[in-house]
Nucleic acid binder design. Structure first.
Lengths: 233, 233, 233, 233
DNA sequence: CATGAATGAGGTTTCATTCAT
DNA sequence: TATGAATGAAACCTCATTCAT
């Protein structure tokens, strides 16, 4: 993000601080619901000075997004390139992802919630980055399947489960809470690696029961919006 | 939602249609970015008439949210009350949840994205409903642990994993795609039930490797934002 | 300019009135110096209602411009197509042009002064219209030369003289003053038609004198910015 | 233009250069649409330093205007005072005027377009200068009439024609084009001097035809905005 | 039931100008 | 001399909402 030439030494520092505060406000109230006035008040700067630093409101979104996605993608590529067990690399990647979620929770909120507010080009860049990240996961999962560590399954679906489990974390996690990134990574990977591992005997039974239930109890459809007719007894 | 007294027979029908269209627009463009004019154009009604049906813009949000949460919570309670295996009930609850995600994808988008736009009271109601739903899951997971089907673990963390896996689905799912709610439920539960099951021997190894990696390779920190110092060899 | 469907009968009337007032304000203070608030005050409408009618500030410019150029060009084409003496057609065209300058003086001011504020596409349209109009003049002048009514001269330069003489009129004309469009047209054409007619003997003399003056009086250069060295006597 | 006391030797030089660049920018984009930032960028100076030289934005307008009007008026007075044929003096004055239009086209653009942005006092000065210049022309034309070189006509109207023809030139002239100031002056004066000269026989005919046309063809009114009723045949 | 017209607050952004350094 | 930082007014425009008809 090369700024026009001629900025004093403190410029970039203050600029970063403003982006931080913006991320915090956007995370709390949403991008659309946060006005430049709100930001100015929080920063302690009049509107004019604010624009001196930020360029535009949408540009803040771009900065926030790239501050999250740039480092993450870069580190993720390094990890994926390691000459190691795919499972280990997945585990490391998982912790890396969770680490940035913990550290930059505000940014992640914005990133996950308001990326639709980006205009065409910026949105395209963002989606490409997301896609690159997903591909790294997908490749590792495929390798794990090929090496027999996971049962054979749709790599796409496995990827999506991995991402669901990690990416939704921002919705409830508390950076200063009882769990840290390492612990969550450990737990998530334990679930996923076991879950993706060789089939055991418990599963088929439940699945069969579920089929029977649906057959035998048409009066209690799983569709929450289906009409309800009690079979009571 | 105070509705003016004395409505014709078509009132409710048309009202529901409007809410549907609103959900669709909000899902596409976001609640804040959708104007009442947009909605009027999509519905084919001038603003005045629109307000006759909707009351206010925020009220639409309330309607959309309750249309999702009402049936879901009601059905979830019925399922949780069944006299059956906790695993089976979890499996049924999973499919129920995914079914409504598939069916009401637009509503879910709005529900997940824009609930922050609700004002105090409505927000409180919504959060209470979310909490109730989570409690149902949590109780079933605890029962499964007590009955030895799952290893002992934090019920809260298990719940959050269950919710992460399911709730993030709306981000990418395509209702007319290759997978349906039943299939996804099957897959998710396969992962979770295996993952939450008795510990196998594969896991500890990965975890130990991860610890060693972090010890031996300080030059490649998992923190994506940490400074990078190559240990080259 | 078809407006979005669904406007009452009074809409267009009021819209035209607003454009009129806008033209008047723009003519007095300039387009850039006239704010939408100014316009609102003059019209007696709040900003919101104003935008209901005008679409955007720039759109006002487009309307004003086309209100002048549309009728003028259309009528000019009819006149140019008449089966008559080129001189007569030039005379009629002159009066037509001056008539609209008198009638729509405000619009002309805006049209002549602020067309640079138009954005790309609109500007292109405007310039094309101007060019079309100039071409009509140019063709008639060429015909007059071919028929021996005018001495042979650059048609382009003749056209520009015609336009200079007419178009600059808006700068000082007073619609309710002592002269009307017909009179001015008569006078302008008298000047131009005589001036473009066969060469007489008075001219060369002046021109020769001017050359001699410049040769003999280097101390009084015609360039107003040249250094001055008095030759005083 | 209060200049802070004590300026280095380069001050005035740099100041003039800045005014030049300002004139160029104002001519291209208009005074209102050119920001001090634009100017700073073009000059290569930050805003603070710029204000050290220019005083204020409006002051630039004053400088630009006086740079054109000062020398022109001074030279015009000298020419008008010459003991010579009024026609010759008009011809010299014409060339003088066109010379500065060619040389200072940017300034002229600004002068003609944005003088309305001047505040009260400055505007009054400018208008007085304009008026003085016009008076010089008017006097010469009157003399030419008295001496029988021109037919008797309204001196005011003759002046306005002279000014129209010359002053509108800035709208299309290209300083490096095929024509120079001397040539244009020659052509303009040829037109005007012939046009203002003794009546010839071509004119009355056209004028009579025009009257007949308007009488006989009410269906083709010269007013471009008049309703059109074809008289077809 | 339905409409088009009107409002007024608030949104983002620009800009001439000032001033400490 | 020159700079970068700061201000505050004002610009254009949008929008949820109301209301007479």
């Amino acid at each position: 993000m090369p700024r026009p030439p001629g900025h004093g030494p403190g410029f970039e520092v203050r600029r970063q601080k403003i982006i931080d505060i913006a991320a915090s406000l956007f995370a709390q109230q949403g991008y659309a619901a946060t006005s430049i006035n709100d930001l100015g008040r929080a920063v302690g700067l009049a509107k004019g000075a604010l624009y001196y630093y930020i360029g535009s409101k949408e540009n803040l979104l771009v900065e926030i997004q790239s501050r999250v996605m740039g480092p993450l993608l870069s580190r993720a590529r390094q990890i994926a390139d390691l000459d190691m067990d795919p499972l280990l690399r997945l585990r490391l990647l998982s912790e890396s992802l969770l680490t940035i979620i913990f550290r930059r929770l505000d940014h992640i909120w914005v990133y996950e919630h308001d990326y639709r507010s980006l205009s065409g080009d910026e949105l395209k860049t963002l989606l490409a980055q997301r896609s690159d990240f997903e591909q790294l996961i997908s490749d590792l999962l495929s390798q794990a399947m090929e090496q027999g560590m996971f049962r054979t399954m749709s790599p796409r679906l496995a990827t999506l489960q991995f991402l669901n489990l990690h990416n939704h974390t921002y919705q409830w996690v508390k950076p200063d809470g009882q769990w840290d990134a390492q612990f969550l990574s450990h737990e998530y990977c334990a679930t996923l690696f076991r879950g993706f591992g060789a089939p055991d005997h418990a599963l088929p039974k439940v699945e069969k029961q579920a089929q029977e239930f649906k057959r035998d109890r048409p009066g209690l459809p799983l569709d929450p919006e289906a009409e309800w007719e009690a079979t009571a007894g």
